[in-house]
Amino acid sequence: MIATKPPTYPWRTAKNVALALLAWVIALTFFFPIAWMISSAFKTENQAFATPPVIIFQPIFDNFSLAFAKYGPALKNSLIAAIGSTLLSFLLGLPAAFSMVFYPNSRSRSTLLWVISTKMMPPVGVIVPLYLIFKDLQLLDTIFGLTLMYTTMNLPLVIWMMHSYLSEIPIEILEAARVDGASLQHEFLRIAMPLAAPGIASTALLCIIFAWNEAFFALNLTNVDGAPLSVYISGFKTTQGLFWAGLSAAATLVILPVMAFGWSAQRQLVQGLTMGAVK
């Protein structure tokens, strides 16, 4: 940053090494519970809750095959809810964001802020009537009903993120197309969509993460048939370590894809979480 390079003193190097070491120690401490659970997934049930803790062991894979055999239906539901709600959110949200950016009116800004505010609404404020409506419409314990609620959760995020990506398209490109007499479909499909593609990908990852990890709607609106992974995992809440190795294997399978997604979308995460309030 500065042209003149400060001279290197030994104490300064020592301080840098100490601070780097501190950062690493804290990072590893934070990650440790996750690493410990993943390691438990490769232990026998006895090793998983042995005192003192077993650190060196012969890894086994039985827990994973057992988990795979049991969590199939919940996995299917989670995939349907996460991917389905993401698709539906884009189906509704992309045209809306396109309309707000390319055909704005005096109310576009306040509409966008209102959309963001719906994202901040606590689900507890709507759960009671939703439960009663779902009961009447026979949507309780269905993956379709849950997918609808996850769409509500992710739609504001999609509109916001797409709005900010589409706003970056230079006006000149659009004007040139309009002079050439481009139709609405052409503007949307040939100009907006290709330019927004990278934004679509990372926003979709965020939507999938949020839907995948959601528990409140899942626990209150589904039970067996429509239950996603969060409900399946919650079923083990009273086991108190009895199936810890098996549960660790199931949990590992649940968290690994999401962590991979989250790590790869780190930059967009801040934008998506703060709605652009921090850059």
Binding site: S230, A251, V254, F261
Partner: peptide, 9 residues
């Protein structure tokens, strides 16, 4: 990492 873990897990 902890931020991406499902809360029930």
């Amino acid at each position: 990492g902890p931020f991406f873990i499902m809360p029930v897990i």
